[in-house]
Design a binder for these strands. Structure first.
Lengths: 219, 219
DNA sequence: GAATAAATTTAGATTTGTCTAAAATTTATT
DNA sequence: AATAAATTTTAGACAAATCTAAATTTATTC
């Protein structure tokens, strides 16, 4: 079954919003895709007629098995292309998302599988997100953005999300490196900045912006 | 200036049809894009309003400087992606066109230039067609498909358009190899099959299908 | 040079995806 | 429980790209 780019964008959005299997709301998708609630309702009728979502008026909706399967193939493409852009073409971590949003709609199963092979069957993309294999299976996410940790959680820096000299300079100054262990001591709701404690060092604060670019393995 | 995929397809089609700079007809584009003459007229109004073509009702049309520049960037993308698919991902020569027709519409100048760099700034694509550089300049085409030769023209086999064992078997049997010199003795209009003469061998006939997959340097 | 044929354009309709504004429904609040 | 607020859906419109059929213009032929 083939889908338009618009359909695929809705499928992907619903997939990310349902997470655990809970129902998704019209407004949530509208906000996520920067479109109107009315457009979402229109598209839902279409996706329902194509048997990708279970949906009852006013009651919310979610992807069914077929919808999830479709979502995973799109996510697979997106993450493989991101890996290609960063690993093969040397793009920066932070500049590949929009391009991958276009590339994920290219229709050719063979292309995706050959790209996967060329890249050496990567399990995770440059952001640390798991890449579904050609059957839609994916590994547990082993690393998350530091920004996703909550208070008192601890972890170990496992990756840095971008190679810019500005970031590297900052990390050097704060003595943060791969393997550094840390605990979240406080999160300021005002700006999401975090107070963290590393090894035997004194407490210090990092911005939400920086936290998003650091990956940790939770411990 | 950004264009839709539909606009880009028309621009590319007109470019290929005008060749020398002659006027292009509505019907020619319609046939080329498998669409209706009415649709072509509609699109021409749009391209005229965007100042890409010079066009007067009923009089034919052609790309202006800006239109040609745009066409060359699309052709550059198409041919670089074909090179990538064949050289990097090991696709067969004959299966990349449709995929490249999708990839050529991806919007990102940086992506194209990085791809070009990754591929080592190739001058010709896997079909022997020249690849415009980032300023739109391209080399003279040094090889053409054997199918494009006309009667009494001569040339030398310079490349084989696909690596399938079926084709290689055929070439071996007919004793055709890189460097083989030949002359077109006759072309049968019924099926475009060609009678060719090689070196000191007797005349023999090859199908149009085969001729399309053989490249020659004209002499 | 008038009649006919071919090519091109216009007119009007369709599909996809979107929008705003109004109506319907559900949820929250006195 | 009644009303207010928020959410969702419907109704109607629009832009892009396409189509068919009819009208117009250009080309060809007798």
């Amino acid at each position: 079954m083939l889908f338009t780019a618009a359909e695929e964008n809705y499928i992907k959005s619903i997939f990310h919003l349902q997470e655990d299997g809970s129902l998704v709301s019209t407004n949530a998708v509208a906000a996520n895709l920067h479109t109107s609630a009315a457009s979402v309702t229109d598209m839902l009728k279409k996706l329902k007629s194509k048997k990708l979502v279970s949906y009852e008026k006013y009651k919310g909706f979610k992807l069914n098995i077929e919808g999830k399967k479709t979502a995973l193939t799109i996510i697979r493409k997106h993450r493989l292309w991101e890996s290609f852009l960063v690993n093969t073409l040397q793009f920066g971590w932070d500049e590949v998302h929009e391009i991958a949003d276009q590339l994920e709609h290219i229709q050719s199963k063979k292309l995706v599988d050959k790209l996967d092979e060329f890249l050496g069957y990567p399990k995770f993309d440059p952001h640390g997100d798991p890449i579904p294999d050609c059957n839609g299976k994916m590994h547990e996410q082993i690393q998350t953005s530091l920004a996703e940790l909550t208070i008192h959680e601890s972890g170990e820096i496992s990756a840095v999300g971008n190679q810019s000299s500005a970031l590297l300079e900052l990390l050097k100054h704060k003595q943060i490196q791969i393997g550094t262990k840390l605990v979240i001591e406080k999160i300021f709701s005002f700006d999401q900045s975090m107070e963290i404690k590393m090894n035997n060092a004194p407490l210090f604060t990092i911005s939400h912006e920086l936290a998003k670019h650091l990956f940790v393995k939770k411990s």
